[in-house]
């Protein structure tokens, strides 16, 4: 990869799709490079005046983005074959031409925009919440050791971008596997002192259809996670919990 200089142009190849049921097609655009430029800025450039590399007027490319600092999870897409956030994908670090595709495993809405609502629906399935008694003042809540907090906080940084599902071979049309982001929520909630009280209900779900058994331990999830969440150990921990819980129940304890 050669060094970039100002005024260099580069090519972006985008897999486009006009609607959920439309056929995908590829278009190429030429973009002027600036230092510090990321994929979002390049897409904004294209949107301003969408003309392909062959001089053909095109519709503006549609994609999702919001916070631009890797905390909202909106702008996940497949960039040069890898699922990642567009905002933190700096052009100077990418092989050119840059190829953009919608995040795999999720239904396409249009172009690079996908529908990730299944992720949130699965959060509900694993009961990823603490059933508090109410929002009225009820004192300080549980004490938490520094050790517990430091172990759990990294798991709590998941931005539900869906990259871990996109990269997982076990998430596909023939499987109901919920994916690492969802299982990690169960681990996280089970680790909090008050969340632990409803652990059994969550473990019932993850032992069932689409749960832990679906994981093939390919470990792609952890490799693509933009927040470096230790997803492999998170799932392993949930597995241990689920197993122990099952044994205890079998023994009638």
């Amino acid at each position: 990869m050669r060094e970039f200089v100002m005024s260099d142009n580069f090519t972006i190849k985008i897999r486009r799709q006009d609607g959920p049921d439309a056929k995908p097609y590829w278009q190429e655009f030429e973009v002027n490079f600036r230092p510090g430029m990321n994929v979002v800025i390049a897409l904004q450039d294209i949107r301003r005046d969408p003309v392909t590399i062959d001089g053909v007027k095109a519709d503006p490319v549609v994609w999702e983005c919001s916070c631009l600092e890797e905390v909202c999870g909106s702008c996940a897409m497949v960039i040069n074959g890898r699922a990642r956030q567009a905002c933190s994908a700096l052009i100077e670090d990418l092989d050119r031409p840059v190829t953009l595709e919608p995040l795999a495993k999720f239904p396409v809405v249009r172009d690079l925009m996908v529908d990730r609502s299944s992720l949130f629906e699965n959060f509900a399935r694993v009961r990823a919440w603490i059933p508090i008694d109410g929002t009225y003042p009820m004192g300080p809540g549980p004490q938490v050791s520094q050790e517990e907090q430091e172990a759990a906080y990294p798991l709590a940084r998941c931005i539900t971008c869906g990259c871990c599902l996109a990269a997982c071979p076990q998430v596909n049309n023939n499987s109901s596997f919920m994916g690492a982001a969802v299982l990690n929520q169960a681990t996280l909630l089970n680790s909090y002192p008050t969340g632990r009280m409803n652990r059994a209900a969550r473990l019932d779900v993850v032992r069932g259809d689409g749960g832990l058994a679906g994981c093939g331990n390919a470990q792609n999830c952890e490799r693509v996670c933009p927040k470096s969440i230790p997803l492999v150990s998170s799932i392993a921990r949930l597995n241990r919990e689920a197993l122990l819980d099952a044994v205890k129940r079998w023994l009638g304890k």
Partner: peptide, 22 residues
């Protein structure tokens, strides 16, 4: 104070002191 304590009850992973307080 009630808001911070409420959100701690909801599971917010606040940083803690050695004694386990907020």
């Amino acid at each position: 104070p009630d808001i911070v304590e409420l959100t701690a009850r909801m599971g917010v992973m606040y940083n803690r002191t050695p004694e386990g307080n907020l």
